[in-house]
Amino acid sequence: MISIALATFKEALRKKIFLLVGIITFIYLVLLTLITYYACSQNTASKGSFDIYMMASSFISILGFYFSSMLVAFLTIMASVGSISSETESGILHSIITRPIKRRDYILGKYLGLAILTVLYSIFLYAALLIIYLVIQPSLVHSFGTLVLVKGLLFFILEPLAILALSLYSSSSFKTLGSGIFVIAIYILGLIGGIVEQVGSAVSSDTVYKIGIISSLISPFDVIYRKLTNTFFGNVGMTNSFFVPGSISNTAPSTFMTIYVFAYIIGLILITVRKFKKKDIG
């Protein structure tokens, strides 16, 4: 399992995808720094009330975390959708799984290697975000406290781990193109589901709310993101960047959903292992 994990990690590092993500990340961080700086200096200049300043700062921060989590999702999907399918299609897999390793270890090794990569990237991006906010908006980030920051980091890491579980399932089931389409479709379903769920809650429509919940069960990635923002900004009354602050609140996912996300990851890995064990590699 360790051999597979190491090879998977090295492969992701050596392939151009890593360089591409590195460039995108750099551009993104520069842009985010500029936007945050100008937005905050505008607010400070207007000398509005402290509440408005906090609200505006939260809004910008939420946007930052929102796009950062999307960037992590992008890296995770790009690095993993073809990780098994491309080896199956090319025949590389033939000489790997005929060696003395269990098929289970191959899947777990793939997961571990990619998980290390995405977790390291997530930590880097999270740290970069905090540094930007610390420098530009000291009052807000200082108010979080270490425990909240650590909790936030855990949710920030949890999202790529969940996407990775889905992506490996998809990669072991479909060809690379199909696998990519499947994972992106499920990811988008989660984003839409999250909005639908909040709309349902806002307009008190049980049916709409339930549709949102079902979408979140299939694709709980937005749930994790909302958990993250709720950890930071719940007290400001904002959990989603799409909505006007204060108009929709108290839509933070329940603890049950957090437990569900862990079950989702473990369940998907188990299903992938089981399916892959029975698969004929032609």
């Binding site: 025949g91 033939h94 000489s95 005929t98």
Partner: peptide, 11 residues
């Protein structure tokens, strides 16, 4: 085992 479609990690 040497597979018929010998293909290895090009990187």
């Amino acid at each position: 085992y040497l597979p018929e479609n010998f293909k290895y990690q090009e990187w």
